[in-house]
């Protein structure tokens, strides 16, 4: 599995800048399956992210951002 914020393997390193408050304001940018950069569309109440190999995921079902 790959980190959706930096595209590096989840198991490698601490990903400090992928876990903080700033990263919580970012939709996923990299495909967790293959680490390809995804085409991401943010809309007022959600986002969708498309990997050319693994298809589309959306914010539906992802818990809403809270502080």
């Amino acid at each position: 599995m790959f980190c959706v914020h930096c595209g590096l393997p989840e198991a490698e390193g601490d990903h400090p800048s992928c876990r903080g408050a700033r990263a919580a304001l970012e939709p996923p940018r990299f495909c967790p399956e293959c680490a390809r950069r995804m085409v991401v569309q943010v809309i007022p109440s959600g986002w969708s992210a498309r990997c050319s190999r693994h298809g589309e995921t959306t914010s539906a079902g992802v818990p809403a951002l809270t502080d």
């Binding site: 991401v40 943010v42 986002w47």
Partner: peptide
């Protein structure tokens, strides 16, 4: 501005 921004997420509009 409520809800999400252009490339960043905001808190839910209802909040």
């Amino acid at each position: 501005i409520v809800g999400n921004y252009l490339t960043n997420l905001g808190r839910p509009a209802q909040q």
